[in-house]
Design a protein around this nucleic acid. Structure first.
Lengths: 158, 158
DNA sequence: ACTGTTTCGACAACCACGTTGACGATCGTA
DNA sequence: TACGATCGTCAACGTGGTTGTCGAAACAGT
């Protein structure tokens, strides 16, 4: 019941996970800023992924991201103001408004994917590809699969 | 330069890191709420660690957490209002106000450490202790050591 | 001893991101 | 046609951050 190892108290694990996430996100946005997207913020990339090439609605976006439809709507507002998303009326349902990537949004999404791949490759170069894959497998094993609705069509451009 | 493996695009790595972090934090606070601390929020545990048993000041707290002194001050305000921290005048410097854990704060800190250890033990039971240790080693290797000032005295009760 | 610089905590204004609750408009159906 | 569910939006609020300013206190140099 006591700490298994005094040099590895339990709370360094969440700290390291957060540090790993923040490192990737900070590197991503440093690079995106260099590539003409200085106003993109952490999590906007995830929104782009969730919107996907086919577009979505605010309510659906909220469900995919695990947040309320109001919060999703406000995030869409900001990205519309920045020129990354646009709202168009759904011809088949006057209540709905489709949220779609603008050309600038597509550019940001594509660049995000490339940079993330490069960052992962950097980790693989430092740790070994097998260690990175093992890290992902282990994390998959201890996290709920639907925490970020990874299985929802729309992620991965599916 | 292309994705090494179509089933592992680069952006699942940050997603998994975030999911791992959120899983631990959510589990922690679910358990802390059961143990009489329902108003503790994500990151309060980190603040407790940063304050430490010896206490600190708002400015120093901000430096340890990597945020502005004003943000640290506001967080202290909230935790004072909740009864977890207290401010006392520094007799040797009238400008400074020492921030210290109250008995309730000490209780929260102790319980957080215990629960985090239990959660880490749960991961070790599922993945194997060696995999968890490898995961931590790998993350240490790819994250800047000072991202959360892990070396600052005060963390780890040091 | 006085003066100028630095540091500390606080205040104000602001922004990003999230929450609930309500509500009008629209859709689908009994 | 009337009713219930759904969509987007508005309002109010909470939390966790930011920058800028400022008075009070400490410190260093002349």
């Amino acid at each position: 019941m006591a700490t298994a190892d005094p040099d590895r108290p339990g709370f360094v694990l969440p700290l390291l996970l957060l540090a790993g996430f923040r490192t990737l996100i900070d590197d991503l946005h440093r690079e995106l800023a260099r590539q003409g997207h200085p106003d993109l913020r952490p999590m906007h990339g995830f929104v782009f992924q969730a919107v996907g090439v086919g577009g979505t609605t605010a309510t659906d976006l909220g469900q995919r991201l695990g947040i309320s439809k109001q919060a999703a709507g406000k995030t869409v507002d900001r990205l519309v103001a920045l020129g990354y998303l646009e709202r168009v009326d759904d011809p088949s349902d006057a209540r709905r408004k489709l949220v779609r990537l603008t050309p600038r949004g597509h550019d940001g999404l594509r660049r995000s994917a490339v940079v993330f791949d490069q960052l992962r490759a950097g980790w693989a170069a430092r740790l070994g590809a097998d260690r990175v894959a093992a890290l992902e497998d282990d994390l998959r094993a201890v996290t709920p699969a639907d925490l970020f609705r990874l299985d929802v069509p729309g992620w991965f451009g599916g």
